[in-house]
Amino acid sequence: MTRSATEHGTGTDTEVMQLTVTEEDRRVAWLATAAVGLSLVDAAIPSPLPGVKPGLANIVTLIVLARYGWGTAVWVSALRVLAGSLLLGFFLAPGFFLSLTGTTLSLLTLGLARHLPKRWFGPVSLSILAAFAHIGGQLLLARAWLIPHDGVFLLTPVFAGAALVFGTINGLIAAKLMSEPALSETPHA
């Protein structure tokens, strides 16, 4: 669809600016919306320890990665971090940078891990590896910037355990959703 701002009023020849919205843009927007929605659900779940969260939005990332590739996954994740932080009110606060670092590292990990043979390694593997990368990135940033003391790493085993549990659950949910035929959209893969 093409939206154009053409001459109006005086009728002089003004520069015509065109903003084309591609099919891809719409898809990214919808998927990011789904991811943001899950981020909000995530934030509403009470957590015993700050930093331990299910990370439900990663289910969307995993499905996007499998169906539309890494580039789309990066777009959807970036928009999710941005919009999610705006909605939850921590845009540019420490939590935003923690979230950004975790997401960046897990996307890089997914970029490498998606080349693993599909026959052997499914969404569960990708999800676990991404969860570890996510918490690893957050811990390193927290150590480097927020709490410059090695005491931060005392919680590593707890965070790693949570990453394993939630990574497995999210991976299973993603695998389950992918194994079922898509209803609302035509499969692209």
Partner: peptide, 30 residues
């Protein structure tokens, strides 16, 4: 039962290795 087939052989391997790594991290960090 319907969830088990979703886990591929390599996934089990990753899960096992991760569990071992998490277990080993306790004495290392504590």
């Amino acid at each position: 039962k319907s969830w088990l087939p979703l886990i591929r052989p390599g996934d089990w391997l990753i899960m096992l290795a991760s569990a071992l790594a998490v277990g080993a991290s306790f004495p290392i960090f504590w």
